[in-house]
Design a protein around this nucleic acid. Structure first.
Lengths: 247, 247
DNA sequence: CGAACCTTTGAAGTGACTCAATGCGTGTGG
DNA sequence: CCACACGCATTGAGTCACTTCAAAGGTTCG
């Protein structure tokens, strides 16, 4: 089974690709690459802003730096995600991608994209779907940061990470490493690391989570969900339009 | 010239569609509809969360409501934009679209999407491009709201509206109606209407803008650009990948 | 002319920031 | 095997940006 099928099988939504699609897709994809934790893929030493990357394994995030040195983390990527969509129609990258763990990726060069759109409508539809999904996720994040308080934002982020992890683990986990420093969490939800720490303490005191050494345990998921505002877009995916005319 | 060509000609980037593409595209698009200012297209009385809408004329915005009654405006739409991307892969709409002026739209039903992807790769590529563009825009907005102060956010929004307007007007305008109430501006940049008002007053006092009756005049664009953080993604579009293999 | 909506302003309260120091865990070199 | 450095977490004190609540002033439109 190809990587793309594997990827989509995870979402339990799509039928398998045909042999021809499979072969054509392989011919368009640059082989797997490995990245060490901490390296920047884009806007860093491995500049390839004109590629889409498909995450085979590892965790990464997208971020932007401001002149004043501030940083914003705008997306979290897990296995199965497509990265770099927002860079495709631009000459310069709109965001940096950083590997927070060792990661293995498939690279898909921009010049091949139109070929894929011409020859592989289903693959094109997959790319489109993931772009739309990312759109919805960014939208949710915007609502969270723009219109909720710190505690709610942190709760949402915890729920998001939990949801994405358990999707990949095939079973729900209530205890997991958060995988981000408190400063990075602050960059993701628009707060300082100091405030993130205090809010963690609050959630801990409220007995909805427990912490030890970067490890989080959700002890009251319902209450956490009431504090935060999180919709799991990945599990809401509805791809009927996609497969209707496909074998 | 078809609407889509018209749309893309605005961005000065793409060649014309072929006759067949043109005809095929027409057959997939539901005819123009008119909406009165103030009506909700999605999650409102004219429910069609499973459509893409192409804006022929008018101004609209996308928003989300929270349980506590708060609202966040996440996107501003102008003529030439494609709306509803983030709703396509979901059963329920992820955001509401509201017409803030009378508007004329083309509707493109979701069931026709896969047909378009199969028959009209260039049209599919257009949809994909706009999704990626919207991603970049949402990304920028997230950085602005998450990591800059109110004054910078307001400056960015003013610059954004100015840029979008002048793109359509074919010449740069320094004076224009802002088109949003201060409460709506607050929803767009994550502030209360009260604070928006005070920041307007500040910018006015700083002599970078002047105001009268919802009309704004940018009197010092350079300084405004230094206060805000705004990249005009629409003018940064680079569609070389797109047309390379196209006639 | 009045109602509805929007803008503007004031005063008080608070969530989050800044600055600064301390603690903790891990790895490294002497 | 200890000393130290480094990155990260934690806590306190003071300040500030923004919110909340409340009221008054403009504008538009029926």
């Amino acid at each position: 089974m190809s990587f793309v099928e594997d990827l989509l099988a995870k979402y339990g939504q799509l039928r398998t690709l045909t042999q021809e699609e499979e072969a054509a897709f392989r011919s368009l994809t640059v082989k797997t690459r490995d990245y060490k934790a901490g390296t920047d893929l884009i806007a860093g030493q491995y500049d390839e802003p004109d590629h889409l990357f498909l995450v085979e394994s590892g965790r990464l995030f997208a971020s932007c730096e401001l002149e004043n040195g501030q940083r914003a983390i705008t997306r979290l990527y897990f296995a199965g995600d497509i990265m770099g969509t927002a860079n495709i129609p631009f000459e310069k990258a709109t965001h940096t991608i950083t590997a927070q763990s060792d990661a293995t990726l498939y690279a898909f060069p921009r010049q091949k994209l139109i070929e894929a759109f011409t020859k592989l409508p289903r693959v094109a539809a997959i790319f489109y779907t993931f772009a739309a999904l990312e759109n919805a996720t960014l939208n949710d994040r915007l609502v969270s940061i723009g219109r909720t308080r710190g505690k709610a934002r942190l709760a949402s982020l915890i729920l998001e990470i939990s949801a994405r992890r358990s999707m990949l683990a095939a079973r729900s986990e209530d205890s997991f490493p958060i995988g981000l420093t408190q400063a990075q969490i602050g960059d993701a939800i628009g707060l300082t690391e100091v405030q993130v720490n205090r809010l963690f303490r609050d959630l801990d005191k409220d007995k909805v989570i427990e912490r030890s050494n970067g490890h989080i345990t959700i002890t009251d998921r319902d209450r956490l969900a009431r504090i935060g505002v999180f919709r799991d877009r990945y599990n809401d995916l509805d791809l009927d339009w996609f497969d209707e005319e496909m074998k």
